[in-house]
Design a protein around this nucleic acid. Structure first.
Lengths: 106, 106
DNA sequence: TATATTTGCAACCAATCGGTTTCAAAATAA
DNA sequence: TTATTTTGAAACCGATTGGTTGCAAATATA
């Protein structure tokens, strides 16, 4: 069961959950109220998000508060870094085009 | 067929293709040489990446060069911005924990 | 012309995904 | 104690995914 952060954020519902939890820790029931789907479906999403360590649980009585591990989000940022270098150095699509033609001619 | 950039980068092979193309535009055959899967499978990935405008084609004779639209990658960066604000303001997990408890008490 | 190369598309397949309903466990309230 | 609330897990389902093989179109080469 390969489960990484990129697969986790692929689903729009999960991205919405992340955005909601980012502001404040919440219980599954409270989260589910924001969506049209069932509580169980949200619970499944929470499980997936937890599995790749984007969320942590905090039990309080019979309620469980899910909290976003914002640090984990930096992994995406880290992956983007390799491209950030490029989009900062390429100032126009024309530059990009010309360099490609040059490379092809080799 | 909902196809967005987040779904596009969910697959590890597609992320690898993006990284390869980022350096230099390439033909499907040249790209496929980097992987164990068939050329057709890579072709399918290229189609998906093209559909969400991450790649553009440039025909040269019977060869087709695929080029990364690095601008499109900024969309991920843009989405990350909402969380960047948070991880820059939260200096420790302790701060995070305390604010959550405070909110729950309300 | 005939042949080889490069590519995309269609059909098919097993595995996974996101959803549902049902049920059980644990904590709280009456 | 006996409900009620909150939650997760299991079983199931249709749709989608990522892969395969086979084929056809277009370009380049002999």
């Amino acid at each position: 069961m390969r489960r990484d952060i990129f697969q986790a954020i692929a689903d729009p519902t999960r991205r919405a959950i992340i955005a909601i939890i980012a502001i404040q820790a919440m219980t599954p029931n409270a989260i589910a109220e924001h969506f049209d789907t069932s509580r169980q479906a949200i619970s499944k999403h929470l499980r997936i998000l937890s599995e790749c360590e984007l969320l942590t649980k905090k039990q309080e009585g019979r309620e469980i508060y899910y909290q976003l591990q914002i640090e984990k989000m930096k992994e995406i940022d880290k992956w983007l870094n390799q491209f950030r270098k490029i989009w900062e150095s390429r100032f126009s699509q024309l530059d990009n085009l010309l360099s490609t033609i040059k490379n092809n001619k080799k």
